[in-house]
């Protein structure tokens, strides 16, 4: 699916490498969360996957990124767009239209999707993201969460196998943030779309993602299944990433010699953990 090997990148005029020798594989159907402090290279990594690096941002590039077997150096972002769809930060400025329907049409028109299938692609995309009722709405009148769904829908219409998102809940409240992740889970489980999402809210990642990658200073320092990565919570904290408090609790109980089971990632699991200790 996505195979990154030995990738290093330095922006033109940059002082340091933004990415340092990254090796990473994302398999079909994965739901991968990427977390790290700001400046760790998360956005740069996404740009390397969708071809914005090296085609839009130039610099010193080593290693290779293959998306479905296509090398991103040989294929331009628009050639990759049918395989990897990107939802960027700041959805306000990436909107090109005033009405939801037109926003979704934009990509379809650009790629010259045959006219007789456009209507179906459009309704499918709206259905998958659960915003059919918003089709005729003026984008300016939507809430933040709804706008983000429109942005995702516009990308889903291009039928990518992989969806990459850069902090999709950055400006949303807790409830809308959860809704966006629920949507991502549905797209992942019911429609087989591979998801790579950069996110600061660790609790959402623990609950929804299956794999986790932790970045620090341009390197991927931890990657693997969520529960495995959380075992290294001390390393995460050193990289400036906080762990959910139930994980910290499990660590503490382990240090006290009270607990030796699996790391809980949400409240019900934590409840089970405490009850098991009490016997």
């Amino acid at each position: 699916m996505i195979r990154i090997s030995g990738l290093s990148f330095k922006y033109e005029g940059g002082r340091d490498d933004a990415l340092k020798n990254i090796d990473m594989t994302v398999c079909k159907g994965d739901f991968l969360g990427v977390i790290g402090s700001s400046g760790a290279g998360k956005t740069t990594l996404l740009h390397a996957i969708n071809g914005i690096i090296p085609h839009h941002f130039h610099g010193d590039y080593y290693g290779s990124v293959k998306v479905n077997g296509l090398d991103t150096v040989d294929n331009k972002p628009e050639d990759l767009a049918g395989r990897v769809g990107s939802v960027r930060q700041d959805f306000e400025s990436q909107m090109v239209s005033s009405v939801v329907e037109d926003e979704i049409l934009f990509g379809l028109e650009n790629f010259s999707v045959p006219r007789n299938t456009i209507e179906k692609r459009l309704t499918d995309a709206l259905e998958k993201t659960g915003i059919k009722n918003l089709r005729e709405r003026n984008i300016a009148t939507l809430s933040g969460g709804q706008k983000q769904k429109v942005a995702i829908s516009a990308i889903i219409a291009l039928m990518p196998d992989i969806l990459i998102l850069d902090e999709p809940t950055g400006e949303l409240d807790p409830q809308s943030s959860r809704q966006i992740f629920q949507l991502l889970r549905e797209l992942n489980e019911n429609h087989g779309i591979t998801i790579v999402v950069v996110e600061q809210k660790i609790m959402l990642l623990c609950e929804f993602a299956r794999k986790l990658a932790v970045m620090n200073c341009g390197r991927v320092i931890l990657q693997g299944r969520v529960s495995d990565v959380l075992k290294k919570s001390r390393d995460m904290e050193r990289a400036g990433v906080n762990c959910p408090r139930v994980v910290t609790l499990a660590d503490r109980l382990r240090d006290e010699g009270l607990y030796d089971g699996a790391i809980p990632v949400n409240i019900p699991e934590a409840e089970k953990m405490v009850r098991s200790i009490m016997g």
């Binding site: 628009e78 767009a81 960027r88 930060q89 990436q94 090109v96 028109e109 650009n110 790629f111």
Partner: peptide, 19 residues
């Protein structure tokens, strides 16, 4: 910054392919 972002988004959504 916003215009740069908009340009990248348009590029990713096939702006250059449009006929």
């Amino acid at each position: 910054r916003k215009i740069e972002g908009a340009a990248i988004s348009a590029e990713l959504r096939g702006f250059n392919c449009r006929k």
